[in-house]
Design a protein around this nucleic acid. Sequence first.
RNA 1: GGCCCCAUCGUCUAAUGGCUAGGACACCGCUCUUUCAAGGCGGCGGCGGGGGUUCGAAUCCCCCUGGGGCCGCCA
Length: 462
Amino acid sequence: MKKEVRVRFAPSPTGFLHVGGARTALYNWLFARHEGGKFLLRIEDTDRERSTPEMVDYIVEGLSWLGLDWDEEPIFQSHRLDVYKKYADDLVKRGLAYYARTVDEEQAGERTRREWVEAAPEEIGKVPLAVRFRVPVEGETSYEDLIRGLITFKNSEIGDFTILRSDGTPTYQLACVLDDHFMGITHVIRGEDHIPNTPKQILLYRAFGWDTPLFAHLPMILGPDKKKLSKRHGATAVLEYRDMGILPEALFNFLALLGWSPGEDREIVPKDEMIRLFDIRRVGKRAAVFDINKLLWMNSVYIRMKTDEELLRLVLPLFEERGLVKDDSDREKLLRLIPLLKERARVLPDFVEMGFYFFSDEFEYEEKGVRKYLQDPEVPGRLRLLRERLADIPEGEFRQEKIEETLRGLAGKLGIKAALLIHPTRLLLTGRTQGPGLFELMEVLGRDECLRRLDNYLKRVS
RNA sequence: GGCCCCAUCGUCUAAUGGCUAGGACACCGCUCUUUCAAGGCGGCGGCGGGGGUUCGAAUCCCCCUGGGGCCGCCA
């Protein structure tokens, strides 16, 4: 019988869910789903000073938003402190670990440095002591990385390391090994920065007489300057991307392809396809630069894939916040507006940016447009004619086709190109020189509002 | 500094010894069009360097160079 695959994501609640962490979680999740195994969550909160419950909530919120779900109750390391201590003591009893303390050693001159010394027998039980694992000086420790192949370390270069702090809490090395063992973790998929920890943990597994899981180390995510991605590169927290109007599906897709490729020339890959195609061996080895530009493009693709109703639900709060949409008739208008805007939006707030003039006439004419379209002395006369013809259309017939027919008819009569009417009209109605097709936007705006906005201008120039 | 990892267009990547090194983002043209987007077509642009192995290397080996990670009673 094949053993069930069990993987975990083990964040430390000392900060927000970083996109690097999110991608690690994502790969674990994809792997588990592909293998029909379990994806678990473990909160590594043994560092009491830096861990906070709020961060746990934010991390959980970030994972949920991204669409990652886990299969069992999350494990909190802070709830299991007695377990770690017991196993550390066991190693001491068996001579594989020892009590130790630090001393400040005077180095030549003024510099002081902390050094570890094994505690004398009479000190044990009297002063706070840490437990250190004894690493053999001889031999080497190696493992087969699922992504990178054989990796070997000389034991002499590993050196003893602390497994239990003097306050009785475990360090990462100990807690990670014990929990992975008791959680039945079969594959440890984590960031490349953990490679140097791996031999230490393997040594611990052996000391306890346990089988080691399989390891896979993911490449780093870098900023545009090729340094490890951090706050100074801009947004790094998953929820920041949510707040800037990125869709979870887009970030999911983007992160999945940052370091992994399904092997076909595909960029937009639905989640179920990804699960089907995911293969940890196809994860690349080299660090990847986080290209926000490509994310924005991908987001625009996902926006266009949404239905108008879905988009309404997503952008309505943004319009309400700005006081632009107040009642049902506004909402109805917004829904009719969405198909005009979704081709042009890259992030959700773009809808507000590009659509606010449908709900408010408090805008200035774009200066470039004034220069280009309102300078010709013929313009006011032409627009007055257009205004009259539009006014003749019954309210109920103020449809895109009818408007177009009217405007083009007038242009024909005047012997001018339709563009000479279209551009100035757009400017007066929207303040912009660019945007959705004029006739579509006029229909949504409504006859009376169109006339009003034209009049605002015509009154001033007469 | 020591150890470890990595190296294909500006960026994300495909290629698993054998076609003119393919795709995507970005950029630049052309096209469609009332503008802007979207779409279509096209262009620019890459195997870090040097040695080997081989009939043949982006691909395998070695060296160099460059980049990154870790060297905590953080994870």
